[in-house]
Design a protein around this nucleic acid. Structure first.
Lengths: 338, 338
DNA sequence: CTGTTAGCGCCTTCAG
DNA sequence: CTGAAGGCGCTAACAG
């Protein structure tokens, strides 16, 4: 390995001068800079980041924590997309991104400890937010820079997060259904302890209330990513005397399953029942029917969260709420019941 | 920050002793070990990995390189799944995983340079394999440990890779179609410069040949993840005088689009046309109809690739080929034409 | 079994 | 504008 000393020797200057050239220090003459740089080029020098990190006490890498990998939700394209967003800014700013996860909450906690206490990273992005989360707690106690993608359910005033206005989004999309002439609207959501599900459902009920449409308990269904289990639930809802004429589904990926089940039950979307959902994953565009859905700008969520920790605008002192706008993408899963 | 010195001072031993305790060196008395450990506990000591890495010249982190993020293919759940696999072993072995990518090949190349020359990682996993790839070339020249997930198209004998036998897989699934009474079988593949596409198509033609079924040029269609563009292509193929009675699609995600387009064209799967594909993504299970597909064990691909670089069984000297078995998952997208 | 001495490669005062 | 010296926190011979 060629070090700073080697190139110092080669150019006849001192190591500190070389170091200064690397930092492009202004009080080094242009000629020595040129000379040194040439040597670096010739000898194929490349700064050793580990050494540098040790000296400056910073790693220029940020840790990204995924939800427990036991969770099927990891299959959601949401994650690839947000990683893309994060990656775009880490890349541009010459940062690195360390991915980490675990099978259980316990493991994740251990991981986070390992990477922050071990000084692996300068900051952390949490890609989940659970109630009563030890990780979050650990991070705030430690005063370690971090941001949550999604809405934290506690310590709200002490942590920075980037999220969509999911309540509003839920209301918007539900209103769209109402405006297009639907009035028996069901809601199908993912795990009911996820804030995002709760918020979107909240928006859904808000919209119904505003339109004076009664909220029916039987119209609210929660399922993990629906497979066999969820199937019956959907079938049940469809056999109600007042069968819904529309359904808002809390996630595009779930929509795929729902559409499949509806078809099996002999109903087609949107002819027999309209459907709208959230995320605007690539999927929602290629499936049939193409989904009318809320684009939550996942990529941007990633970008903004990365910017937030890197640009360290955040101190534990001034937590921020960054809200990414959403908008409706109109496609073919809604029927106009004039 | 509490260092090794602090706890040395606190316990009245030397720093090296503390270091040995950390390494659980056998020639340290149990009592001093206990004493030291207690101090570590009390003072909240945690080893600084950057320092350690510098000293031992190893980072215990492996770099994972994604394909260019411009590529829509990143949306493919394949990546989440393989990251899960890799993560499971890095985690277990107390390694870290550094994710990196770029918008263009150029950027990726720069990234790889940065992380290997900067000594960020001990090894690299390439999640793509392109013809005439500078990155691959750089890595072999440098003699840097790396493994490719997928089949390299050159330097075959000098690099380690983990892959499925995609040719065989293609043959297997196509044969299944033939056995179930189909004989006008089309092939729809992704980008035609991807080895995986090529291999699967190769298997497809092999199967046809063995069954003495002629290979029709019009039955071969290539498209990126199909959207508007691919649509016409599929419609075209369906209007042929000899319309296919089955289609082999090179990826589950593409299948979703294909099924959608078939439906729009008034054809339903599998009644009018059978469909099989590859990967067995979560999607293929929830979509309607559920897909008969090849399970390539993505998770395992990840696990094995991670094991390969970490356990450094690989030297530039003895490259390995690790083949992960595949098997057919029979579901509802194939009609039995007895 | 434990302490001493040198680094790992780079950065940063402090002098000049 | 540049050198010398010391240190970041930890490990690794080399002595005892």
């Amino acid at each position: 390995m060629v070090t700073i000393k080697d190139i110092a020797k080669a150019t006849g200057v001192s190591p500190s001068t070389v170091s200064r050239v690397i930092a492009d220090n202004s009080r080094i003459s242009e000629e020595t800079k040129a000379k040194v740089r040439k040597a670096m080029e010739d000898l194929g020098y490349f700064p050793n980041m580990t050494a540098r990190n040790l000296a400056v006490k910073s790693t220029k890498t940020i840790g990204v924590i995924l939800p427990s990998s036991a969770d099927k939700s990891l299959q959601n394209p949401f994650f690839s997309e947000i990683l893309r967003g994060i990656g775009s800014v880490t890349h541009k700013l010459q940062y690195s991104m360390m991915l980490s996860s675990g099978q259980t909450e316990e493991e994740i906690y251990a991981e986070v400890q390992r990477i922050v206490l071990g000084s692996y990273v300068d900051g952390i992005i949490l890609l989940y937010s659970r109630l009563n989360d030890r990780v979050t707690q650990f991070l705030v106690e430690k005063g370690f820079p971090f941001v949550i993608v999604g809405k934290p359910q506690e310590l709200n005033d002490r942590i920075t997060y980037v999220d969509n206005d999911n309540i509003q989004a839920g209301e918007d999309i539900t209103s769209h259904l109402i405006e297009t002439g639907h009035n028996r609207i069901a809601f199908i959501g993912g795990a009911k302890d996820l804030v995002v599900t709760i918020d979107r459902m909240q928006g859904y009920t808000n919209a119904l209330k505003k339109a004076d449409i009664p909220i029916l308990e039987e119209y609210l269904i929660h399922t993990e990513f629906l497979k066999s289990g969820g199937k019956e639930a959907v079938e049940k809802i469809l056999r109600l005397p007042e069968r819904p004429d529309a359904v808002v589904v809390s996630d595009d990926l779930i929509s795929i399953g729902v559409i499949g089940m509806l078809e099996e039950s002999g109903l087609s979307v949107p002819e027999d029942i309209s459907l709208v959902s959230f995320n605007n994953a690539y999927l929602s565009e290629i499936i049939h029917p193409a989904l009318t859905t809320i684009d939550i700008q996942i990529y941007k969520l990633g970008v903004e969260s990365a910017k937030a920790i890197i640009e360290k605008k955040i101190g534990i002192d001034d937590p921020k709420r960054i809200i990414i706008p959403h908008y409706i993408i109109y496609r073919d899963s809604v029927k106009r019941n004039s």
